[in-house]
Amino acid sequence: MSHTSPYRYFDGLRDGLPIGLGYLSVSFGFGITAVGEGLRFLEALIISMTNLTSAGQVAGVTVIVAAGTILEMILTQFVINLRYSLMGITLTQRLDCRCTTPHRLLMSFGLTDEIFAVAASKPYPVGPSYFYGLMTLPYIGWAGGTLLGALAGQILPESIRVAMGIMIYAMFVAIILPPMKKDRGVLGAVLIAALLSCAVAYLPFLSWISEGFSIIICAVVAAVVMAILRPISDEADAKEEGQA
């Protein structure tokens, strides 16, 4: 079969390095926050090792500390993490034939915004080995950063820690910019999503929209608009099939 991915475990590992480094600094902050809210370091670590999601975890700690109901916990996590369902469906279109159900059960655990974005924007479909490679360093970074943050609080000097905050976003820029040069549709989708996201962040009458919802609303609107204005051609489809 030609429908197998050209990417190997090591390719995934390499692509996952910037994500892992970014997660290290983000989860460092989560570790500090969680312990500051009254959790023990082991509890903070277990949250990171079993959840692997920043916004959801911060909200989860809030529910725990406020002694909220189990229903509240379920609803909070469901709403904040709903975008992973959308990403999961999107990614199923970019998988090679080796992604069987047992693999998908394991792979779905590592479906984060960044891992999804990298995997979904690869030119060829991805397989389980690449995806596991891609998951490895972010997982270690996420758990390790939480542990360091929870245990030590201030291991890195402030100046380095704050500068590390931009890494993850710079990586996003590196993913979206090259296709923007070649594909007007991608250019449009990026501009619309960025403008909407800024509108939600800066316009007072939109400020009730939470960050998690803002991402999903802005992205869906931008993708729908561009899918109507600039549907991908059958030629592009055929080419993609050929590559696969």
Binding site: R83, L86, M87, T90, D113, F116, A117, A120, S121, Y169, F172, V173, I175, I176, P179, M180, G185, V186, A189, V190, L191, I192, A193, A194, L196, S197, C198, A201, Y202, S214, I215, C218, A219, V220, A222, A223, M226, A227
Partner: peptide, 13 residues
């Protein structure tokens, strides 16, 4: 389009 739109919405601002 959705992966790029998600990234853009997360990155800006």
């Amino acid at each position: 389009y959705i992966p790029y739109a998600v990234l853009a919405a997360m990155t800006f601002p």
